[in-house]
Amino acid sequence: MTTKFTKEHEWAKLEGDTVTVGITDYAAHQLGDVVFVELPAKGSKLQKDKVFGTIESVKTVSDLYSPVTGEVVAVNDNLENNPALVNEEPMGAGWICKVKMANPSEFDQLLSEADYKKICD
């Protein structure tokens, strides 16, 4: 299983032809206390690099950009009642949605962990 990144601070973890999407540790830290995640609807179609939701913290709001094109096959309903999961485990229990890729080659174009780290520094 490989995890890759976007310059908009999302991560995408590959499992077969599906990726799990969330925001990175760095992003979660920058946002501060996350209070709400606007989740995409299950079954909705996402476009690579297009906004698919928003994430709100106490003092700011930021758009979520889809790392790949595809269909949402699962969303993390736990975030509705417990958005703090994004702060506690952004790369784990704080995942946002799972997307079945329309074009699996898109995954390869995402940033490696090392390249992503360079952006954050």
Binding site: V35, F36, E56, K59, T60, V61
Partner: peptide
């Protein structure tokens, strides 16, 4: 509360 809805944070959105 819920200030992320408001103009001083969300500006043109």
């Amino acid at each position: 509360t819920l200030q992320a809805r408001e103009q001083h944070i969300r500006r043109e959105k």
